[in-house]
Every structure is written in structure tokens, then in C-alpha cells.
Design a protein around this nucleic acid. Structure first.
Lengths: 162, 162
DNA sequence: TTTAAATTTGGTATCGTGCCAAAAATTTGG
DNA sequence: CCAAATTTTTGGCACGATACCAAATTTAAA
């Protein structure tokens, strides 16, 4: 149940650049194989720019890239993307606690998220009681916060790890 | 009293790069004229690196630079630095609300602060009730949060500005 | 005033990100 | 099933932020 892969704790949350994090989150919400053009249109950048970033992400094991075909998240990529999404949601929730509108929260979060550590997010998440509602999901897409990547205090091996 | 300079509202909080913000905050805490070497030692970078960044900051009106002599904050620079310091404190306080230690709060804040808008900080500040205590000040230096840069809701011209 | 120390200049480098043009592969339409 | 259209990739280049080094310049010190 709560037996997450222990690999998870090796994530610091600071390993990827802003754009790469955006791509991973996008791929996660997209599901299956995604083509270069889909990404380049979603982010309004040149396809060649996408090709280069996904090459690096593939190199680092976050995704599988079949040239001229598209990319899919690897298992590690899914785990990481899940964390990124959750981080975004936790931070958005946090800003909303201080009176920012959902849009403002999302905006501010988008600028800072890649610089917030997993360690901090885990603490914040438990401090918030592991919330299931995110303040900033696209309407209709009522995705709940996924705590799989969370470093729950109740985990038996927490003591060792800390 | 609360008649801040209206220039203040022209600050978005996103105009300066991380290093530049660090320099301004450092200069503010230092007071008078500061020499290149002081900065380069404080941040452990080559003096030539400092020279270049302060040249840009001077160019943009944040400081006065007398070559071979040192730099001082201009009035605008002081205002901006004051805002940066406050932003750091508000964000640090925020993280501490979610169970992060002072050190963790300060660390996380240092990575994100330059990407958080003044608008967000102002909202957060009033949501917090304009706190005067910062969680992350260097020990001994019990600097209180300075709200001069704050966009108080009680300001008479708030309506127009919003 | 000659020497030492601090500062600035000019050159170069890396990382993240982006564009463009040309080449390569895939898809489509006849 | 093959030529044309579309997609993707490659290679080159660029820019902002940041950094280093070596050489030149200025200031300070002996």
C-alpha cells in the first residue's frame, strides 16, 4: 500500500530545469505517446527546441524517445512527473491560503516550483494533512493530488532515512 | 506616514536576476559604501564578476558606482532592496508556517524569492496581518520586517491603483 | 616613488532556452 | 506504390545570467 519505491527518496526536486519540468507534467496529463509537435504547440516553441529537450530527458531516463515517432514517460519519468504535479498543487494551495486567487497562485507557482525541494514539499504536505484538493487544476480535469511520491511520516523506514 | 512613494507600485518584483537581488540585499544590510572585494568575498565569486553585475545595477539606477572606490544604493535601490528583504522574510515566514525549520525556510526562500511578484507578497503580507517578526534573520541582527514597500489595503489611493 | 593591492577590461565558458535553415524520415494522396 | 506534403531532427547560431582568467589600470602603501 504505502510501500513506495525507495528510489523516490533520491529525488531532491531540483534536478530538472523549468522547461523540462513543464514537459514532464504535460506528458503525464497526456497519457500515452506524445508527438513533438503536440509539445511544441502546447508551449508555443519551435519543434527543434522540443526535440533537443526531450533528447536530454530521454538521456536522463525520464522518457523513451522513438525518433520521428514520439515520447512516453518511463516509470521513473512518471514518478518524477507525479511529484512535479503534486508540488505544483501543494504550492498553489499554499499561495491560496494567503489570499491569492487561483490564477495568481498558479502563476506564482509556475515561476517558483522547480526551485522548491521535495523535502520541503513533503513537510508542507504533511503539515497540510495531505490534502486531496488542488486549487489550480484546469476546469473539468478534476485531478486530485496524488501522494504516491510523498514521504509520509508513517513510513516505517522514515527514521533511518532522516 | 503611509504616504509611500508611488513609484513603489511600479515594482513587479521580477525585474532583477537572483544574483542582483542578492547583491542589493547585501548592500542594504551593509549600509554605506561597499567595495567590490567585500561583495566578491561575501558571495565567493571573482571580483571581476562583481564588477560586471554592479555595472549593470548602476546602469539601471539601483546603485551609484564610483570606479575603484565602491558602490552605494541609490534611493530607488534602497526601496527595491527593502522590498527584496521583506519578500525574503515573508516567504521564509510562510514556509515556517508549514513546518519547515528556519534554515530550511531560508534555503527554499533563497531559491525562489526572485520569482515571486510584489503583488503576491503584498497580498500575503496583509493576509498575515503585516507581521513584524521574520523567521530567518541572522542571529543577533534582529531586523524587523519593514513594510514601507507594502501596498496596504488601507492606502487611500488603493482603489485607483488596483 | 616604486611596489603591492584592489579594481576593471576583455576574452572566454557553461547552462538553459530559443530560433532558423537544411537534411532526413514519415505520412498522405493520387 | 511512389511523389509530394508534413513532421522531425540536425547543426548552427544567439541571448541572458553567471562565472573564470589574464592583462591592464588605478589606488594605496612602504
Amino acid at each position: 500500500m504505502t510501500e513506495n519505491n525507495s528510489k523516490n527518496d533520491e529525488i531532491t526536486g531540483l534536478e530538472l530545469s523549468p522547461r523540462k519540468v513543464s514537459y514532464l507534467k504535460f506528458l503525464l496529463t497526456k497519457g500515452e505517446t506524445v508527438r513533438t509537435t503536440e509539445i511544441s504547440e502546447a508551449f508555443d516553441v519551435d519543434p527543434s527546441t522540443v526535440t533537443k529537450l526531450i533528447a536530454e530527458l530521454a538521456e536522463d531516463g525520464y522518457l523513451d524517445h522513438i525518433p520521428y515517432r514520439g515520447v512516453t514517460l518511463t516509470d521513473a519519468g512518471k514518478v518524477y512527473a507525479e511529484f512535479c504535479l503534486k508540488r505544483h498543487q501543494i504550492l498553489g494551495l499554499m499561495f491560496s491560503h494567503y489570499g491569492l486567487t487561483p490564477e495568481e497562485s498558479c502563476d506564482e507557482t509556475s515561476r517558483i516550483e522547480t526551485f522548491v525541494s521535495k523535502r520541503a514539499i513533503d513537510r508542507m504536505c504533511s503539515s497540510m494533512g495531505h490534502p486531496t484538493l488542488s486549487c489550480c487544476v484546469k476546469p473539468g480535469e478534476a485531478r486530485q493530488i496524488n501522494h504516491d511520491s510523498c514521504f509520509h511520516e508513517s513510513r516505517p523506514n522514515l527514521i533511518k532515512k532522516l
